[in-house]
Simulated assay, not measured.
Amino acid sequence: MCAKCKNLEERIESARHIADRVPDQSMIDTYQRLISALEAEKVTLHPPQCDGG
């Protein structure tokens, strides 16, 4: 895992940790959007490889 992906993964885990403990649904939704954006950024850095099948 490259350094940028490692940093993104740490941020994703942190956001998940917080989202699991926040009682407010609007905050949970906000953290879920953040997590989705960070995961998309990871995919942009390293697109999934096609196995040709």
Rank of each mutant, 00 (worst) to 15 (best):
L45V: 01
N7S: 10
E9R: 14
P47E: 09
L34A: 13
P48A: 03
T30R: 15
Q49V: 06
H46G: 04
I12K: 08
R11D: 11
M1R: 04
H46I: 06
L8E: 08
T30E: 14
Q25C: 05
S14K: 15
Y31F: 12
T44L: 09
T44H: 09
I35V: 13
Q25W: 00
L38N: 06
L38G: 04
P23S: 13
R16N: 10
D20A: 13
P48E: 06
E41Q: 15
P47M: 02
L45Q: 07
A3E: 15
L8Y: 14
H17I: 02
V22I: 14
M1W: 03
K42E: 01
D29Y: 00
A3M: 14
I12E: 08
P48D: 07
E13C: 03
D20F: 04
K42A: 08
D29F: 00
H17Q: 09
L34K: 15
K4E: 14
E10Q: 11
Y31E: 03
K4R: 14
A37Y: 12
R11Y: 08
R11M: 13
L38Q: 02
Y31D: 03
K42Q: 10
A37L: 12
V43C: 06
I28R: 15
T30N: 13
S26D: 15
P48S: 02
G52I: 07
I18K: 14
E39K: 15
T30F: 03
T30H: 13
I28W: 08
I12V: 15
M27R: 13
C2S: 13
P47V: 09
D51Y: 06
S26C: 09
K4Q: 14
K6T: 07
E41N: 05
Y31M: 02
E39R: 15
L38T: 03
E39P: 02
T44C: 04
S26T: 11
T30C: 12
A15D: 06
D20C: 05
D29I: 00
D51H: 05
E13L: 12
R16F: 01
D51P: 11
D24R: 12
T44R: 15
E13Y: 08
M1C: 02
K6H: 04
P47R: 01
N7F: 10
A40R: 15
D20K: 07
R11C: 01
N7Y: 11
K42V: 00
L8R: 07
G53D: 10
G52T: 09
R11T: 00
C5L: 15
A40Y: 14
L34G: 12
D24S: 06
R21V: 00
M27H: 10
P23A: 11
A19K: 11
S36W: 04
A3Y: 10
V43Q: 12
R16Y: 05
R33F: 00
V22D: 12
L45H: 13
P48G: 04
